[in-house]
């Protein structure tokens, strides 16, 4: 029996090597920022990134220790004819690493609260620009309240996109006469914007990577989210909630422009009505 107990070292070596390679490759891939998220364009997005990075450091450290620990264990304790160390466990160690885990995880959760709270618990500034976002298979439609600052009434039975009324604006409601209905989202830089997300048919989603913000648009609900973009540019809006065969083609553009350009946009739209 003693002769058969000794195994070759190839298996354990290879396993330890692969685990080490895994760690090196993963660390490199993250550190080299080979496929990074695009730079954030709001201060809330910066908070999200901070929390992401903190989580990355903490989980990264655990990942490295655990995988290398596994590599070490399989190598060091491979069967070389030794006797295994009989133990049923160690209560002190159990308490120690359980406490460390609780502390780390709960700590992360608490630290992450702010990034969530800023967007979700804090309402937008009272002078936020409101834009209604209506989703349906497979387009985004954006509605501005126009000069009167009021959204017109909508009636689902009046929806008729081919006839130019994709949202079902009620023609009898004067507040709706100046509503601006466009396929892309134009907002001024450094001004708070509140989006009111709606859906006409199935669950869709509004996601802009640079905002680090996404929210499902659920039929039967109007869901508000807000942001303040601090960088002019064009950013892509995509739908992340499976909505049918056109899911991957459903997208639009977030156009962050200067205050001047924004007012020009509003004037052009109003003139065109």
């Amino acid at each position: 029996m003693a002769r058969r107990e000794r195994g070759s070292a190839t298996g354990p070596l290879l396993l330890a090597l692969l685990l080490t390679l895994l760690v090196l490759a993963t660390v490199y891939a993250f550190a080299a920022h080979l496929y990074p998220a695009p730079p954030p364009i709001t201060s809330d997005a910066v908070l999200v990134d901070r929390q992401y990075n903190l989580t990355l450091y903490v989980t990264g450290a655990v990942f490295i220790l655990a995988q290398l620990g596994l590599a070490y264990a399989v190598l060091r304790f491979r069967d070389r004819g030794q006797r295994a160390r009989f133990t049923r466990g160690n209560i002190a160690m159990e308490i120690l690493w359980s406490s460390a885990t609780v502390f780390t995880f709960v700590g992360l959760a608490i630290l992450g609260r702010n990034a969530w709270a800023e967007v979700r618990f804090t309402p937008p500034a009272s002078d936020a620009i409101q834009v209604e976002v209506t989703t349906n298979q497979f387009v985004y439609t954006f509605r501005y309240p126009g000069a009167d600052g009021k959204f017109g009434m909508l009636d689902s039975t009046l929806v008729n996109a081919p006839a130019g009324n994709p949202l079902g604006l009620d023609p009898n409601d004067p507040a709706g006469k100046d509503d601006i209905v466009v396929p892309t989202l134009t907002v001024p830089v450094n001004r708070p914007v509140e989006l009111l997300l709606r859906s006409q048919d199935v669950v869709h989603n509004f996601f802009v990577r640079e905002l680090r913000l996404q929210q499902d648009a659920v039929p039967g609900m109007v869901i508000p989210v807000h942001f303040t973009a601090n960088q002019i540019g064009k950013y892509e809006i995509v739908c992340t909630q499976l909505c049918g065969l056109g899911h991957s083609r459903m997208y639009s553009i977030l156009n962050v422009v200067s205050q001047f350009d924004y007012e020009s946009f509003l004037k052009r739209q109003a003139a065109g009505q």
């Binding site: 160390r85 009989f86 133990t87 049923r88 466990g89 160690n90 209560i91």
Partner: peptide, 8 residues
């Protein structure tokens, strides 16, 4: 006797 060996 090793740690935590409980003789039941």
């Amino acid at each position: 006797m090793p740690d935590n060996v409980v003789m039941e």
